[in-house]
């Protein structure tokens, strides 16, 4: 490989690796078990209840109060 092609290739590789971790997981999850089974990958396991502090409960309002 020519020197400049090598450099460009490694740059792409570096950038890909940085976001790859975050996005690779997501893509893999869609391709694989998550579509078939609920517990395979992370799902939103948490619910907001009246016992949660106000600042968490307020995330479910449109800003005009609980």
């Amino acid at each position: 490989m020519k020197k400049h092609t090598l450099f460009a290739a490694s740059l792409i590789f570096v950038a890909g690796a940085a976001v790859g971790h975050l996005y690779g997981n997501k893509i893999l999850r869609n391709r694989h078990c998550c579509k078939k089974s609920n517990n395979c990958c992370t799902v939103n396991s948490s619910k907001i209840t009246a016992a949660d502090p106000v600042y968490i409960r307020e995330t479910e309002t449109n800003g005009h109060g609980l």
Binding site: N44, S45, I48, Y55, I56, E58, T59, T61, G63
Partner: peptide, 21 residues
């Protein structure tokens, strides 16, 4: 919900005064 329950949101919102809306 998971994001809002994280300490990240608690720290972030109170440090910079972000409201959920």
């Amino acid at each position: 919900t998971e994001f809002f329950k994280s300490n990240f949101w608690l720290y972030w919102s109170t440090m910079f005064a972000f409201e959920p809306w």
